[in-house]
Amino acid sequence: MGTLVTLHLPPDSPVADLPWIITFGALDDEDWAPLVCGPYERPHALALAQAVVADEDLMAVVEPLLPLAGVAAIRDEIALARAGQDPELDAEDIDADGPRRTSPGRPPTEAEVRAGFERLAAKLTDGG
């Protein structure tokens, strides 16, 4: 069984509405480049990651993707990261106990994931 790592968010967190990515990597000394998948809606990312690591010695990190549209915005986020701050998260948003075990339910179907892609694309292009 693998490990799933993600942020613990309060139910009303605006971060939950961002696109989310999954990074899969080895848990042991196996030497291969991590695989990054997404973007997905958060529930889809959690369910897909859980399904993949359920029977394999893999680590899956599920995290929000910041759709930053310019160099200045990216530099600002880098500066915040270097300072150890995230303006969207409070200290209680991050699970201090380490990896969090989740039960996201069944993995989404391919059609559900594709519908999620469409919703994310609409959010990113229309601001909706």
Rank of each mutant, 00 (worst) to 15 (best):
36 V>E: 13
53 V>K: 03
53 V>G: 00
1 M>E: 02
99 P>S: 04
23 T>P: 00
62 V>T: 06
127 G>N: 08
57 D>Y: 05
58 L>Q: 05
67 P>Y: 10
97 D>G: 15
111 A>Q: 14
35 L>S: 10
39 P>M: 09
111 A>S: 13
49 A>R: 01
26 A>V: 01
102 T>V: 15
84 G>M: 11
95 D>Q: 12
24 F>H: 01
74 I>C: 14
38 G>I: 02
122 A>I: 11
43 P>C: 12
64 P>G: 03
24 F>V: 00
124 L>A: 14
104 P>R: 11
60 A>K: 06
100 R>M: 12
25 G>E: 06
55 D>C: 09
53 V>Q: 02
7 L>E: 05
83 A>C: 03
101 R>H: 08
9 L>H: 06
109 T>K: 12
4 L>Q: 02
11 P>C: 06
124 L>T: 01
128 G>L: 15
105 G>P: 06
13 S>W: 03
54 A>G: 00
72 A>K: 12
7 L>P: 00
62 V>I: 10
67 P>G: 06
37 C>F: 08
47 A>R: 03
88 E>T: 02
70 G>S: 14
124 L>F: 09
88 E>Y: 07
117 F>L: 13
90 D>F: 10
61 V>P: 00
67 P>I: 07
20 W>M: 06
32 W>C: 01
45 A>C: 11
15 V>E: 01
35 L>C: 05
119 R>L: 15
104 P>H: 13
10 P>Y: 09
74 I>G: 06
128 G>Q: 15
65 L>C: 10
83 A>G: 01
125 T>F: 14
